[in-house]
Amino acid sequence: MFKNLITESTAKSPWLFHINSGSCNGCDIELVAVLTPRYDAERFGFKLAGSPRHADIVVVSGPLTQQSLPRTLRAISQVPEPRCIVTIGSCPQSGNVFKGSYSVMAPLSKYVHVDVAVAGCTPKPEAIMDGLVQATEILKEKRKAWLEAKKNGLKDGPKAETEQEVPAAEDVPASGEEVQQ
């Protein structure tokens, strides 16, 4: 009786957790701009959450520098299950102009399945809002998939995509030790 109410409200109250992995803060300002009166993402229930445990959508910006990569992955793994990962700007998707630098471990999709990628070197707030609304749809799908899997027996629902498709991230540098160039 509550099941579809919960599924509906999963899309209606997405909480964001913002991870800045070495970004030039261009995308960060745009993300915060989305919450300002002019664009007002709170109309759709968006709210910045303080800790990954409270988050539904993880928003990653910045080219995933070598120091911040292990921390970003650990924070993402601490987000409870029906979660979406949204990357803002082109840095997390490809490392932008910093590609090839020894300290940039760019495409996030190498380590984690990225659900929505908002392109643009500082994408417009409207673009970010579209991306986030898109993410809420995906959240709902994930919840439905999770319910189906639960119905036909899988103890903990489908293995979250993040674990399935991620290629063995062998070159993820264990935190702390230097990346041999």
Binding site: K12, P14, E81
Partner: peptide, 11 residues
């Protein structure tokens, strides 16, 4: 209400 029921569904 939406927040509450969303949280109810989370892990």
């Amino acid at each position: 209400m939406y927040d509450f029921f969303k949280l109810m569904g989370k892990e």
